[in-house]
């Protein structure tokens, strides 16, 4: 277990999981959730690939990366994925980081499509070999962090 996971474990165990994402000073806007779901029904559902690819920036390419504190989605059991996302959608069980607010506007059909997509993929191993760092650092970009 790397240091980030350890740190996360201690933090999470000290604050618990059962907190609402809907704090008083949250700001919501644009379409209401209802309008959002109505709009989703008007057009064909986006492909499972495109829906799932939206998660890449945090969970790694098509959900396959296991980096520090954000877990991979690839390889997750389909029913488990659906269950988690549905839990995130209900305020009282929402994840306090981002998953609560991300899951809320996603339709049940879209969640199921993503669950099916990710279940067929394999995650990368945790300590995957890094690609070579072949950047050339110009002189102006070098800084001595110790100078402070």
């Amino acid at each position: 277990m790397n240091k980030y996971l350890l740190r996360l474990f201690f933090i999470l165990s000290s604050i618990g999981f059962s907190n609402s994402a809907l704090a008083d000073d949250d700001l919501t806007g644009g379409l209401s959730l209802k309008e959002n779901f109505e709009l989703a029904k008007k057009f064909p559902m986006p492909s499972p690939w495109l829906l799932s690819a939206q998660c890449s920036a945090c969970h790694g390419t098509l959900g396959t990366a296991f980096n520090e504190i954000i877990p991979p989605l690839a390889g997750m059991d389909k029913q488990e994925f659906i269950k988690k996302m549905q839990e995130y959608k209900t305020a009282d069980a929402s994840n306090f980081i981002v998953m609560g607010i991300i899951a809320q506007p996603i339709t049940d059909e879209e969640i199921e499509a993503m669950a099916g997509f990710f279940a067929k993929l394999k995650p990368e191993p945790l300590n995957q070999e890094k690609i070579p760092r072949d950047v050339v650092v110009p002189e102006w970009a070098v800084m001595n962090k110790e100078s402070e």
Partner: peptide
């Protein structure tokens, strides 16, 4: 069609 949610402090 946009829907946004900004977490509070």
């Amino acid at each position: 069609g946009e829907r946004y949610h900004i977490l509070g402090a």
